[in-house]
Simulated assay, not measured.
Amino acid sequence: MLGMLKKYTIELCPEVNGKISNNGTPIENLLIERSLTYADEEYLDNCITNANGEFSFEARSIKSRLPGNILHEPVVRQVIEFTMDDNNSEIYIWATNQHDITCPAICKSHLSNLISDIRNEEEVFELINLEAPEYPLIVRSNCSL
């Protein structure tokens, strides 16, 4: 019963740093959007790439009582994307579901240095989650992971 009263820190996303290019040429002034979802709450923010095509987001955490409920399975959805003006389709730099209240080390490692080229095809990667091997990190991305 006491576990349901405690507030837990949910790590929605660590600090993100990345770079966007077009065949190696940095893309300036591109809107990058981040969507983080936990339970029924969604957190949205965005940034604009600089002259070097670089972008960043601060780490984001929240407090919640949900992990104290034995019937609750914690899942954090992370999406970082952009839309090119010429085709109006969203391109995923990073899209995954994290199955814990803390971000796995492999996730932190990749999110600290996302290198995206708009010419890359999106792929689905399965990353080994050393902290919880039963939950590999399935990532959809146009980065080389």
Rank of each mutant, 00 (worst) to 15 (best):
M1C: 06
L2E: 12
L2N: 07
L5M: 11
K7G: 00
Y8H: 09
T9W: 01
I10G: 02
P14L: 10
E15V: 13
E15T: 15
V16I: 15
I20D: 02
I20M: 01
N22Y: 06
N23M: 09
N23K: 14
T25Q: 11
P26L: 11
I27G: 00
E28M: 07
N29C: 04
L31G: 03
L31K: 13
L31C: 05
I32E: 02
I32S: 01
I32C: 01
R34M: 14
R34F: 04
S35A: 11
S35Q: 11
L36Q: 09
T37R: 12
Y38I: 09
Y38D: 05
A39T: 07
A39E: 14
E41V: 11
E41N: 14
E42Y: 03
E42K: 13
L44R: 13
I48V: 12
N50Y: 00
G53H: 00
F55T: 03
S56L: 01
F57A: 04
F57N: 03
A59K: 15
R60V: 14
R60P: 02
R60L: 15
S61V: 12
S61D: 15
K63M: 11
K63E: 13
P67C: 07
G68H: 04
N69A: 01
N69Y: 10
H72S: 07
H72D: 09
V75D: 05
V75E: 14
V76W: 12
R77Q: 14
I80G: 04
E81Q: 09
F82I: 05
M84W: 03
D86N: 11
D86G: 00
D86Y: 13
D86V: 10
N87A: 02
N87L: 03
N88C: 08
S89E: 10
S89D: 06
I93P: 03
I93T: 03
W94H: 07
W94D: 01
T96Y: 02
N97M: 10
H99E: 11
I101M: 07
T102P: 03
T102V: 13
A105D: 08
A105S: 04
H110T: 06
L111D: 02
S112E: 07
N113K: 11
N113D: 10
L114C: 09
L114N: 01
L114M: 14
I115H: 01
I115V: 10
I115E: 06
I115Y: 00
S116A: 13
S116F: 03
D117E: 04
I118F: 03
R119N: 15
N120L: 04
E122N: 05
E122V: 08
E123G: 10
E123L: 12
V124T: 15
F125V: 10
E126R: 11
E126A: 07
L127P: 00
N129I: 07
N129S: 08
N129W: 05
L130R: 11
E131I: 06
A132W: 09
P133C: 05
Y135E: 13
P136H: 14
L137Y: 03
V139N: 03
R140F: 04
R140Q: 14
N142F: 06
C143T: 15
S144V: 14
S144L: 11
S144F: 08
